[in-house]
């Protein structure tokens, strides 16, 4: 993480994610750095999934917010290495996800090739806190989410899957 003059960092860090608007780009871990040199600001973003269509909107939002904050010379750049991971979601980000009814991810790691009986992680329902939950589909409304349901409160919920 690059240390930046706090003002420019704060502006970029406060931009909400277009698909998870309860999180800022900093809380999501997409904002990879902000540097200022003279009057110019460069902000780096790390895309989540290869195909995440929101990255163009994130870049445009960061650019517009920084300009609106009085920086005339703004550059937004992508940083692909190291790749984004759900481990980059901050503690505040995880709490806000849960408050919005989206179960936060566990520690990242590639899904293992399982040939035996399926063993699911224990995932708490973000609505009622119950632990009798099940995965309905590994894939959901966006690339980063899976669809789950709680057998305690009978409500479906989304969950950020580890990557």
């Amino acid at each position: 993480m690059v240390t930046a003059p706090a003002a420019a960092w704060d502006v970029a860090a406060a931009v909400p994610d277009p698909e998870l608007p309860m999180l800022t780009l900093a809380e999501l871990g997409v904002l990879a750095g902000v540097e200022t040199e003279g009057g110019a600001v460069t902000a780096w973003l790390t895309p989540t999934y290869s195909g995440c269509p929101a990255i163009a909107e994130m870049a445009a939002d960061v650019d517009a917010r920084l300009r609106a904050a009085g920086y005339p010379d703004v550059r937004v750049r992508l940083r692909l290495d190291p790749p984004w991971s759900t481990d980059r979601i901050t503690e505040d980000g995880r709490r806000k996800l849960a408050e919005a009814g989206i179960a936060p991810p566990g520690p990242a790691g590639p899904p293992l090739l399982r040939l035996g009986p399926t063993r699911h992680r224990v995932v708490s329902c973000p609505q009622c806190g119950g632990t009798d939950t099940e995965e309905l589909s590994r894939f959901g409304s966006t690339a980063c989410k899976a669809l789950w349901r709680c057998r305690d409160c009978r409500e479906p919920f989304e969950r950020i899957k580890e990557i």
Partner: peptide
């Protein structure tokens, strides 16, 4: 163009769609 709060309404066509932007 920018909305009153300074946010672009729609990212497409704003020049940020290059998947290797600034890399």
């Amino acid at each position: 163009g920018p909305e009153p709060d300074g946010e672009a309404r729609w990212a497409y066509g704003t020049g940020f769609s290059d998947p290797l932007l600034g890399v």
